[in-house]
Design a protein around this nucleic acid. Structure first.
Lengths: 219, 219
DNA sequence: TGAATAGTGTCTCTAAGACACTATAAA
DNA sequence: TTTATAGTGTCTTAGAGACACTATTCA
């Protein structure tokens, strides 16, 4: 038997098959808090509980494509920063049947989001991760997502994903402070990220104090 | 319909099911090189090519348990350091059918391994990651694994997983140097890891030079 | 005593941390 | 002029990097 004969005769049914979902942990910052997008379940199990937006992975679809689909289904967004988080495989995580969940984490600036309808909404992330209000193991997944971005703040540029294309340094510093959960010294913060910045000649205006310069991220 | 009625009436077949494997990237250091455990495929597809040891995930088995099973099948090992790496979901990664692979990474000291038979063997990792010799997308997975441990060397204790319970500092330094791919200054290295060490009163002996002290990892 | 490797002392330089200062808008 | 926030200068300290030195074994 050569390879093509083998492929022709191959029966996939001979292997065990499982259901696979992609669950999306979409973070944003609103009201000076890290928030996560959740939907209220309209079905059993966990009817009425909050859950991460998710989709079943289709046989002809990559995992990244599933994540994209979950994203565009719940928000109007495309082409934003997202990365795979972790894959959850406890046997009892879904009471219906065995479901493996590949979680993805995404970061978007609050201003860029327009939720299609009342289906999904943002909730404070760390509060929810510690609560019992969530369906499945989603509290744990959110906790893991928080940990991940907190770790990556210091050695990547993910914080920039939470502000718009143009931003002021006080604004960006606030994002860092929220993610890290502690205040930062202005002067030290600026020194540290100076090389990632592109200065514009625009300034904020209207506030009853000194205006701040507007920056962009250096490509 | 309440929740228990719902569960009783639930038909899992209504969802798409996929095959899921766990593939293991088992690293060790031998001949001053990072090496990875591979098996020679005895079946189509990729007959005769090298591949990561892997198993299909059983419906009643967690992902970690699948990784454990893959590990003990190919080596006699248990209770070693391993962690989930990444989940690979390209639609064409297996020519037979759609297979999602959850990869795990493990690190073991070479001395602790006794391979059951001629089925599996170690090969230089970075060489293989760059070659075309591997089945499926396994070269890419190995490359990802190398990246992961290279990143984690500096801020975790994974390097200790590649030496035995008792070790000398020249030995441990060599592991760091191989993982990082560059020589390190002795004095600086010792300063940096001093707080992770437990000094024993044992010394090496026999060599035609000054003996070195034997240490253990601080718990 | 010399070859070979183990182990230590210390100087330099950079970057993080802390804090005080100056600048500029509106009311 | 006051209030509020934006932005800068600089001292101190911890740690990384570089290198020279001493120590101990066997042949």
């Amino acid at each position: 038997m050569n390879e093509s004969e083998f492929l022709a005769s191959y029966r996939p049914e001979s292997y065990e098959r499982l259901s696979v979902t992609v669950d999306l942990v979409l973070f944003t910052i609103r009201d000076e808090t890290l928030q996560v997008l959740l939907t209220r379940r309209k079905e059993h199990p966990f009817l009425g509980r909050l859950a991460l937006p998710g989709v079943f992975v289709r046989p002809d679809e990559t995992l990244d494509a599933s994540a994209e689909r979950a994203l565009s289904q719940k928000t109007g967004l495309h082409d934003i920063y997202f990365e795979q988080l972790y894959t959850w495989g406890d046997t009892e995580r879904d009471p219906r049947m065995r479901v493996i969940s590949v979680s993805y984490c995404a970061l978007v600036p609050w201003e860029s989001i327009s939720l299609p309808d009342g289906d999904a909404a943002f909730f404070p992330a760390s509060e929810l991760a510690a609560s019992q209000e969530l369906a499945f193991d989603h509290a744990r997944i959110i906790g893991y997502g928080i940990e991940r971005i907190r770790n990556k703040v210091n050695y990547t540029d993910i914080a920039f994903s939470l502000v718009g294309e143009e931003f002021t340094l006080p604004e960006l510093q606030k994002v860092y402070e929220i993610l890290l959960g502690m205040p930062l010294y202005k002067a030290n913060f600026r020194r540290k990220i100076a090389d990632k910045l592109l200065e514009t000649d625009k300034m904020t205006s209207g506030a009853a104090h000194r205006p701040s310069r507007i920056y962009r991220k250096k490509v």
